[in-house]
Write a protein that binds this DNA or RNA. Sequence first.
DNA 1: CTGAAAGCGCTTACAG
DNA 2: CTGAAAGCGCTTACAG
Lengths: 350, 350
Amino acid sequence: MSATIRDVAKYCGVSVSTVSRVLNGYTDISEETANRVFAAIRTLDYVPNDTARMLSKKNTRIIGLTIPDIKDPFFSENAAGAEKLLQENGYQIFYGNMERSGEKLLKFLQQARQMRFDGLIITPDEWSEELLDTLQRISIPVVSLRRRPPQSSGVPFVDNDHYRSAMEMMAYLTGLGHMKIAHIMLPTCIGEIRREGYRDFCRIRGIEARDVRVDLPANKLDQAKENGYEAMKIIREKYPDTTAVFAGTDQLAIGAMIYLREAGLSVPADISVVGANDMDYSSLPWFDLTTISLNRTEMGRAAAQMLLDIIENRRPHPENLLLGSTIVERGSAVRLLSGEAEGNKDGKAV
Amino acid sequence: MSATIRDVAKYCGVSVSTVSRVLNGYTDISEETANRVFAAIRTLDYVPNDTARMLSKKNTRIIGLTIPDIKDPFFSENAAGAEKLLQENGYQIFYGNMERSGEKLLKFLQQARQMRFDGLIITPDEWSEELLDTLQRISIPVVSLRRRPPQSSGVPFVDNDHYRSAMEMMAYLTGLGHMKIAHIMLPTCIGEIRREGYRDFCRIRGIEARDVRVDLPANKLDQAKENGYEAMKIIREKYPDTTAVFAGTDQLAIGAMIYLREAGLSVPADISVVGANDMDYSSLPWFDLTTISLNRTEMGRAAAQMLLDIIENRRPHPENLLLGSTIVERGSAVRLLSGEAEGNKDGKAV
DNA sequence: CTGAAAGCGCTTACAG
DNA sequence: CTGAAAGCGCTTACAG
């Protein structure tokens, strides 16, 4: 068995309390004693037992962070941002892979209670009654990341301002002269918010809303390929004069591009395509996709900061945070040639 | 504060030991008592304190698993495989993100000792003296996943049989009639093994080895793009009659394709390209990449199984495991037209 | 079938 | 500056 604090104490002839104090960095220790203790620790290869420490200190300095889907490309940067800040503050992250299952989340929360995590950052796909209920009773500070809980839950959140981001992308496209812009909607909470931005923009600017909803969340590239493909097909059928497509994610945009490729249409010469989220493959020359870049690391960091504020009682009830985004201009969307624009306009006017 | 086992005991007028026994599923308990205890647990909303349990049981049922790079596309499936098996056996995984840093790994190991993990699955990029040293002293069972430790370390590993996989891919290409096959080598341990397979195959079959080494590990797509691009450029300059390229990873293959695209060469009409690892975007119609598919989930599972065998003392010193792979045939590599083959042959023969 | 007691390895007032 | 003692919330022989 490995050495305990008692072994160290005995070894250098001091009390256990003294060893504990030097371990915890108390300063009211004579330098000589401290040195003896350090020496003993080294020769005995003593490693403090955190389970004991957690028990007596009544905190674990562990933050649970749920990953909606371990292949979610968002998660890694979110997590990196959160982890950095948390580590700077002496906390560790315990990751839980939810695999898009509400049940696994419930299990994770139970585990979090058993292990007495100090805080929780969650990204649930659905706010079921049961989830809200356990969140209520759990007595562990919680922050929601990238998902917006019901007001009544009292759980604060950090998210991108998808509504504004969608508006900005639309403004960008109309700025390029496009007026016949279709939207491929992601069937998620985020997708809905983006579509609202899209629709409101259309209403305000008096242009036709042409949004198509796909069936699956399409977080996986292979699903998204098919969904974007189908959506693009519908767009071409229902709105053949569309000059630009704003897809709810880059994956959907690529799916749309597959359809266009098969149909013999070229991007951006025949039609502009933009996405959202800026995946790493989106910059490949075959796509060269103009897209919305969310500050993922920043989001993770902000969620962690909010959680720390609650835990350390600086702000027991923080306000929700909506972060901005930027448009990454690449080659998949171009200015509409005035001839084209005129042509279309004329087509309608006549 | 939340209820403790004492509260439960008092509440139903039994001893703490009794409550503990029903909690741990002992069967020598009168049904009536057990029911009373369960009822009390429910009404008091009692959740056992795992930190206390870990301390007294002297095990944590936590397995540490290091992630070389949180964006590593391998990791997710590896982890999923390991997690599933471990969970079935009542263990939990504590993930550690190494960000390709040997120092962070050392810190993680320290943490693992402090928290008294029951086992460790690691994927270190380098086997430094210091690492080997701490692994020696740590007294926690360790298995290496996707990395091969020095023999002397005594750490068992699970990996793909990259040597054989490379040979198989070469056999596939020569089967298509290719005899002038270049190789883009990944500058990692795995990359070296693959190159050995490539070279040995060339030697055995008496064909020229044309391997080009890139500078960076190129695990990130954007690095790989540039590296594959540069490598392809070199191949075109040094070996202009190359008819097929076997890239060390799909990312490198795509980088090579970018060069070919710019050079006005089309794949596979002008040159065949294959990769390794089967990324999710590799199946997109722009690449349609023939590649080596490793059974990632299976690798994770195998590592977990090996670790459990050690922990539960079934096989204290398991043998290393080398898993097989399969070739995913897609459209980026095609049969060499006999005319072309002849042409090249003639070119040499004359 | 059940309880009293010791112990897991720490921390933390309290006292000096 | 240091030590003795109680306590954190469990588990586990031991005894009955």
